[in-house]
């Protein structure tokens, strides 16, 4: 499947109200809408109206305190908030919503503990971001929040702590997983999708030497990966550090072809594969100007 037809598949997921469904016969969800918007940004002028409608819909999903949750019935599941911020970036009409979202993220309560966590070997005092309000901090939501603050040119102390957390959760032999490093003295396994997300969040916030092992690791592992999230995040993570693989476009096409027997990929997967094909300098490349 060509990347161009991937854009058409993505467009077909948009409902008349502007929202995106994650896949056929599933209700629309804000995270799918946000990723749909970012994916559509690869389409240039022809998708502008679709993006506008989706952004307006996403604003309506925002709760009064600034969060964007997975559903009205699940306000604690606020992890789509940084995604919504990215979807509104560069859109003056979304200024107020974005500011509320940024404020919400800056003050989101998460679970930390002061006692040194010897079992998990992590610095549990650090405030990053959680998938679910009030629970522990993990790699992906932290990286996405850091990345979102960056796109708005805001760098609160909380964001800097988020960067520290990401570095703290890097595995000794390189890479990241969901967010634990050693448990009972055993180093856990890395996971490609989180490596790419973390590298995306950390780009511009640490030295290359700080993530060198992780870059080497994902570069080696991505060669054999043809699953949508791990592949797209792996490519985007490497690209953010100037190491986009030469064969990336071929791998993306091979991955898209797998839909013939796996069934259609989720909206998020399609959007990320589009972005991985389009953004040769990493995900930041889709945001042409910093929105002030």
């Amino acid at each position: 499947m060509e990347i161009a037809s991937c854009l058409q598949s993505l467009i077909s997921r948009q409902k008349p109200d502007g929202s995106f469904i994650p896949r056929e016969r599933v209700d629309a969800r804000p995270d799918a809408t946000a990723w749909g918007i970012l994916g559509l940004r690869t389409g240039g002028a022809e998708t502008e109206k679709l993006i506008e409608r989706a952004r307006e819909h996403l604003v309506k999903q925002q709760l009064p305190d600034g969060r964007v949750a997975v559903s009205e019935m699940h306000p604690y599941a606020c992890w789509p908030t940084p995604l919504a911020l990215l979807a509104w970036q560069g859109w003056p009409a979304g200024d107020a919503a974005a500011q509320k979202g940024l404020d919400f993220l800056e003050h989101l309560t998460v679970a930390t503990w002061k006692v040194e966590d010897k079992v998990n070997a992590i610095d549990a005092t650090l405030h990053g971001w959680s998938w679910i309000a009030g629970t522990s901090c993990w790699v992906e939501p932290t990286a996405m929040a850091v990345f979102a603050f960056d796109r708005y040119g805001r760098a609160p102390e909380r964001m800097k702590e988020g960067v520290k957390l990401l570095l703290d959760r890097q595995l000794p032999h390189g890479g990241w997983n969901f967010g634990n490093t050693l448990v009972f003295g055993a180093e856990l396994f890395p996971a490609e999708e989180y490596i790419g997300v973390a590298l995306t969040g950390l780009a511009g916030h640490c030295e290359k030497a700080d993530v060198a092992r992780s870059l080497d690791l994902i570069e080696k592992r991505i060669v054999s990966i043809r699953s949508p999230l791990a592949l797209s995040w792996g490519i985007l993570g490497l690209a953010a550090w100037g190491r986009r693989p030469a064969d990336a476009d071929r791998w993306i096409a091979e991955c898209l072809d797998r839909q013939q027997y796996l069934g259609a990929f989720d909206t998020t997967h399609l959007a990320l594969l589009l972005l991985a094909g389009h953004c040769h300098d990493g995900l930041a490349g889709i945001f042409t100007a910093v929105h002030s």
């Binding site: 997975v70 599941a77 009030g134 629970t135 992906e140 969901f178």
Partner: peptide, 14 residues
């Protein structure tokens, strides 16, 4: 579902 409980289903650990 991870979309409601996160990864690694941290709500249940908490």
């Amino acid at each position: 579902p991870g979309v409601f409980y996160g990864w690694p289903k941290n709500v249940f650990h908490m």
